[in-house]
Structure formats: C-alpha cells, structure tokens
Nucleic acid binder design. Structure first.
Lengths: 230, 230
DNA sequence: CCAAAAGTGTTGGTTTTACACCCATGG
DNA sequence: CCATGGGTGTAAAACCAACACTTTTGG
C-alpha cells in the first residue's frame, strides 16, 4: 500500500454501511415493529441472518451507499434514512479492521422484498423474535431501535413507518411498541388529533366495530410547535 | 492495492476522527461556551484553524483514536466523549475520499493547552466568534453544537463542562448559552436544586454579593426520574 | 450611596393523567 | 348474545411561567 502525499502510512480500515430497515406491520391488535434481515450468501457468516449492508465505494456518500446496498440486496428504494452512529470496535469483523456507519431506514407498511446480490434470502422479522445475527448486528440493531425511540417525539417517524392509511389503533400500537409501555387511548387520540385527518373510509376487520382510517396531515409534524409528549 | 479474500476491490476511503472539544469558561456574567481549535501545521490548509483530529490507525477503536489525536495535538486527556455523527460527503477533503467520525468532547473549566504534533498552535475560541475553519469543520462544529443542545436535558453535560465548583449563576449561564435563550433565575434554581449541593465556600467577585459555590451531587443525573425540562 | 449580581415564594394558567360507558360488527 | 376493539368527556393533580423585592459586596 503506497502512501500518497498528505495522507497517512497505515493500512486503512474498511468502511461499510449497514441498514436496519423498520416497518410497522401486522393486523391492528397484533401490530409489530419489524426489521428487514437478509441471509448472507457470502463468507464470512454464510447462511447467517444479517442487516443489509456493504462496503462504501470510492467517492460515494454514506447515505447513498446505504440506499444502494439496500436496493441491491432487497429491491427496496424510496426509503427514509436516519444515521444512527458509527461503530468501529476492533475485532468486530473477521475480515479485518472495519468501521460501519449504521442507518435506520423507515418503510411504509409491508413492502415487497426480493433477495438479490449478496443476499440469498430476505425477510421481515418482528424485533422481539430475532434469529442469531452475523457480526455484531445484534448490537447494531439494539442501537437502531434506541435511536427510533429517542426520535419518536421529535420527528415524523410514525409517518414513515405506517401505511398511507391507518387506524388510530395501529398508530397507538406503534407508539406503544416504540415506547415500551401502554398509553391511554383517549389521551393518545387527543394528542395526535392535530397530526391526522380522516380519509372518510373505514376498515372492517374482525368481530367488532369498523375503525376509521386516517392519514397524516402533510407538514403537521413540522407545524407542531412543541415536540410531542407521547 | 491488493484485494484480500472476502474484502472488496475498490480503493478504500480514509477514516478520520475529529473532536469538537467544548468547555464553559470566563467570568460568570460573561461565561462563554468555548471550543478548542488548532492551527494546522501540515498541508492541506496549512495555517488554517481546524478541529483537532486525524486518521484512525489499524485496529484502533474510534473513540480511542479521538482520545489519541486530542492528546497528541493538545496535551489533553481524561475527557468525556460523545459520538455525534459520521460525515462522508464526497469532496469534503481535497486529499481524497475521507470519512470522518465526529466527537464532541467535554472539558471542565479552562484546561491548559499545548500545541504539539500536527498542530502549530492550539487555543480556545468562543463558539460565536470563530475564525474561518479548514475543510468542512464549520459544518462539523454546527453539528456538534446541535448535539450538545439535544443532549442537555438527557445527560450530565453540564457536569462535564463546568469546573468542579461553580456558582448557580455560571450553571444557569451555561444552560442559557446551550439553549439559546434566557431562563428565569428562580425557576432555574428550583429545577436544579436536586442536582447540586453547596460546598460551603463562596466566591467573592466584583462589586456585588458573593455567590455560594456548588458541586454536582454524584449520580444525581442518573437518579433524576425524568429528563430535565430546562 | 450606587451599581451589580445573589438570593428567595406565590399565584394563575396550562398540561397531563386517570378514569367508565356506549357503539358497531362478526361469529 | 357475546366478545372485541372503536369511539367519546370530565375532573383532579402536576407542572410551568411569570413576577418583585431584599441582601451583600466593591468602588
């Protein structure tokens, strides 16, 4: 390895991006927060489940790399990304010193997934029923989840995770999953009424009264003067 | 450049760490938030002010690299670090594709600074009176500041920025600087009374009543049930 | 004696929480 | 007719924001 002028002489660490892509899915009362995993088709950890991700290319932005890897391995595009952190613990990758930049991706509803590229299989898993993961991806996933929880009050996370039309029950369930505790239904509805509007349609589902469907009012999160006290 | 098995064939980006080291300093009524800058002794940007930082070495952790660079360039150790983000915008470094991991460091009071290593000079600057900076370090500094502001309520930031003994006036001023607005003195004192205790000493300063000196009660931030509503 | 910062409580408004009943549907 | 989740208001408690005067010191 040759040292160019103004750069340094040590071997460079590799740089990867990994994406924890989340979605809120499942029938209302059993709505789950799910994360997209791929089964690795290449060594190391062949056959293990892992977060989609891969090496950053020359002159490629970090978020662009995350987008590209996600598209290559799962066919998903048009996703909102939030950077979570960079992790470079020595020894975390058996291939050598590797620094990864972790992104949380937010997908609406269940998106269709195909396995391609380095992935031999791709599928959604409920975040509380995970298989063993490759590398330190369990740790990465914990961090991505913690990031989502912190961001819940400050940003339109739910907007990006729920389908375009949803019931207030689903919205509430999602918030409860992220918060890790239950909230009062009437108080919840009061707090979010400035963010959503009825679509006029409703959803017939199971042996009970149909639920009104709502959508997010565009820009409502930005207009909300304070952060939401969920 | 030779591709090893299981790694990739593209040239690797370089990885650096940069540190925005903050401290709260200055006589009470004019307390400022300051950041440590070094004057670069090497190309590119020789002679420009910049955040301390440098390349991550082989098998070196990210925070360890931040610690090492700070020590090498400024002689400061024993600092608390918080990772802010990773930045890898193409073109941000004229030496080629470079990804930096940004840390915010928190130093107590004015620490003695010496310029060493790649730095020809090192000194504290008030965050609202900055010189032009090398690379994209103005942007990095903005991000580090935003990080501090967000963390203010959730973590013992002030503990790490203030000297071991301080007046409530200083504490309040620091919070005001971070918040970017003034707060009511009596309300402020009520909110922090669970976090601090009198040392018994007081500080005589200028033509007015001496101020009681306080210290942080160890573990008080952790015990605080909710995040502080500054 | 004046200027400057330190110190100290109360009140009114707002926000948050807790809580219970009826409705529409499918089985 | 029953089980299931959907939909709705009110009252007490907690919290927050606004506010003014007295104290101690140095010049």
């Amino acid at each position: 390895m040759e040292a160019k002028k103004h750069t340094y002489d040590w071997p460079r660490p590799a740089v990867t991006v990994d994406v924890a892509l989340f979605t809120a899915a499942g029938a209302m009362q059993s709505l789950q927060l799910r994360v997209l995993l791929i089964r690795r088709g290449e060594a190391p950890f062949v056959g293990h489940w892992a977060l989609p991700g891969g090496f950053v290319r020359e002159a490629e932005g970090l978020e662009a790399a995350a987008r590209r890897e996600l598209l290559e391995e799962t066919g998903l595009g048009e996703i909102r990304f939030e950077q979570v952190c960079a992790v470079g613990t020595p020894g975390r990758d058996p291939r050598g010193h590797t620094i990864t930049v972790l992104y949380a991706g937010l997908a609406r509803g269940d998106a269709a997934v195909v396995a391609r590229g380095d992935a031999s299989e791709a599928s959604w898993f409920a975040v509380d029923e995970l298989p063993a993961l490759a590398f330190d991806h369990e740790e990465l996933l914990r961090r991505a989840l913690a990031h989502l929880r912190r961001r819940l009050g400050e940003a339109p996370i739910c907007d990006a995770l729920l389908p375009a039309e949803f019931t207030l029950g689903e919205f509430q369930r999602l918030v409860e999953v992220l918060l890790g505790r239950e909230v009062d239904r009437r108080n919840f509805r009061r707090k979010v009424e400035c963010l959503v509007e009825k679509t006029g349609r409703n959803r017939r589902e199971g042996a009970h009264r149909p639920a009104e469907l709502y959508r997010f009012v565009p820009g409502a999160f930005e207009r909300a003067e304070r952060e939401l006290p969920f």
